[in-house]
């Protein structure tokens, strides 16, 4: 299989008021075309940082990202991002949100009718065609996330980047979304990097799970191949021995090898601090 994306020797050092902070050290990862890769790791280890570097939203301190033989230097629609909290424009309808992206990417190459058809096609793909003309505050969280995914898919990206896309959803909605995503994946065979905290989600969806070690100076710890047959159903897998083994591999990595020594309350507090830091840095 040919390599589509090559993340090579990435270091990331943030300037903080307390001096330089090395978040990532020597991250290496190759991703083939059509592959679905999950990034998993404890909160604050640097998953979002990796994803944002691939997206071009952050610049690595050293090392680089090569997509299709070309170095990534800025964000672009060939690396569409699905953000954790949907980030739809609240004043536009679902249709218009997708339209903004489609017009920007295909405005020169598609006719007006083709654009309309393409927008509707992508909204159908995520089962949102019934609420196309609703604004984000009129639809549920899961529906917003669907529109966000439709917007990303509509750009026909080389690679789809998803940062905890279902993190803010309840368990039932999340299961629905996972099924939808598998269905779409079956049809389009996109290349995907998805960040998740959910071990089941990672095993269910991925071809490979990349487990990151704890920061500071986080890096790729282990990589787990998931060779479960597709299409996968969550009910059948629940009794599958291989599934159970893979699942416990991930759990072992997270809770034995990379155990967080901090008490349980800390990660949340830390996440908040980190968010506010990001704001300051912005």
């Amino acid at each position: 299989m040919s390599t589509l994306l090559d993340i090579s020797h990435i270091d990331m050092v943030f300037d903080t008021p307390k001096g330089p902070f090395t978040a990532l050290k020597g991250v290496d990862l190759k991703i083939a075309k059509g592959e679905f890769v999950s990034l998993i790791g404890h909160s604050g280890c640097g998953k979002s940082t990796v994803l944002n570097i691939v997206a071009g939203l952050l610049q690595a301190s050293s090392g680089g990202v090569i997509l299709n033989g070309r170095e990534v230097s800025e964000p672009g629609p060939d690396r569409a991002v699905v953000f954790q909290n949907h980030s739809l424009l609240p004043w536009l309808t679902a249709y218009q949100n997708v339209e903004l992206a489609v017009k920007q990417v295909f405005g020169r190459t598609k006719t007006r009718a083709e654009i309309k058809e393409w927008i509707e096609h992508n909204l159908q793909l995520v089962h949102m065609d019934h609420a196309m003309h609703k604004r984000p505050d009129e639809i549920s969280g899961g529906m917003k996330q669907r529109v966000g995914i439709a917007r990303a898919l509509a750009m026909q990206p080389e690679i789809l980047l998803m940062d905890e896309p279902f993190g803010a959803l309840d368990a039932l909605t999340r299961a629905h979304m996972q099924d939808s995503l598998m269905e779409i994946q079956q049809e389009l065979n996109n290349t995907v990097i998805m960040i998740t905290h959910d071990v089941d989600e990672a095993v269910l969806l991925s071809d490979r799970i990349v487990m990151m070690s704890n920061g500071p100076a986080a890096t790729v710890g282990e990589i787990l191949e998931i060779n479960l047959e597709r299409p996968r159903g969550r009910l059948e897998l629940a009794q599958d021995l291989e599934y159970t083994r893979l699942r416990s591999e991930v759990l072992k990595f997270l809770y034995e090898k990379q155990r967080k020594v901090e008490p349980m309350v800390k990660p949340r507090a830390r996440k908040k601090v980190q968010k506010s830091r990001q704001h300051e840095a912005a």
């Binding site: 997206a55 071009g56 939203l57 800025e74 964000p75 672009g76 629609p77 991002v81 953000f83």
Partner: peptide
């Protein structure tokens, strides 16, 4: 970030 990804 949406705007940057779209290169508006």
């Amino acid at each position: 970030n949406v705007s940057r990804v779209l290169r508006l």
